[in-house]
């Protein structure tokens, strides 16, 4: 029990590393705020291409893209871009390669979600909108997309949670987000308490979102 307190819940160390870890948490948050819109935006474009454009070639390409990045581990993607780009003579800034890797990965997941959402809106909705003279584009923006998004809200939130968790991978390429900060602090103090504190901070950040997700899923279930 003493070992547990001294090594996992060492309050003295918690106090000392808290400012450092909070800075890491802040980095985690803004990194998420950067890559989520990028991934969701690209995913939405891909989903629209796959469902609303009548071209088999394009559909096939989108499916290929989605399956490729579903099969590719995000950490491998990140390291590939981070260590591979310099060999191409591209000097991507660290943040640039991280954002690119995360965007490529989670856009494929967002594309799947949006595709399911667009598929869930009955065809009659589009027909009704077009019959009142709305253009294809306006129909999409004002009629189809709002319903599609609402129908897959839980899955979108689920993806957001996954992306926030995924930012911890950036620690591997030495971006000082929460996990990296905790590991640095651990080697400074020869004590794993900072890692436990980081886990607690992740829980504080993500547990509310996970609860909200369960709540949304319950609501979807009881609405049927």
């Amino acid at each position: 029990m003493d070992a547990l307190l001294a090594n996992f819940l060492n309050v003295a160390i918690y106090k000392e590393v808290a400012p450092y870890l909070l800075q890491g948490l802040w980095t985690t948050i803004w990194l998420s705020l950067l890559v989520i819109p990028l991934g969701a935006g690209l995913g939405l474009v891909l989903a629209i291409l796959a469902t609303k454009v009548n071209n088999r070639g394009i559909r096939w390409l989108v499916a290929l893209y989605v399956d490729f990045f579903r099969a590719f581990p995000p950490l491998v993607l990140l390291i590939f871009i981070y260590f591979g780009a310099p060999f191409l003579g591209w000097e991507l800034p660290k943040l640039g390669s991280i954002a690119l890797g995360f965007m490529l990965n989670n856009s494929s997941y967002f594309a799947e979600v949006f595709r399911a959402g667009l598929g869930s809106v009955p065809r009659g909705q589009e027909e009704a909108a077009r019959s009142t003279g709305l253009s294809a584009w306006k129909t999409l923006v004002y009629v189809t997309l709002p319903q599609a998004t609402r129908n897959v809200l839980p899955d979108l939130l689920g993806n957001v949670i996954e992306v926030i968790k995924m930012t911890s991978l950036a620690s591997v390429v030495a971006l000082p987000e929460l996990l990296k900060a905790a590991r640095d602090a651990q080697s400074m103090f020869y004590n794993p308490s900072p890692v436990i504190l980081a886990a607690l901070l992740y829980l504080a950040l993500l547990w509310p979102l996970v609860r909200l997700l369960s709540h949304l899923e319950n609501r979807r279930f009881s609405n049927r």
Binding site: M166, T167, A198, L203, V210
Partner: peptide, 8 residues
């Protein structure tokens, strides 16, 4: 579901 697997 809330903890990043790498952290675990």
């Amino acid at each position: 579901r809330a903890l990043p697997p790498l952290v675990v």
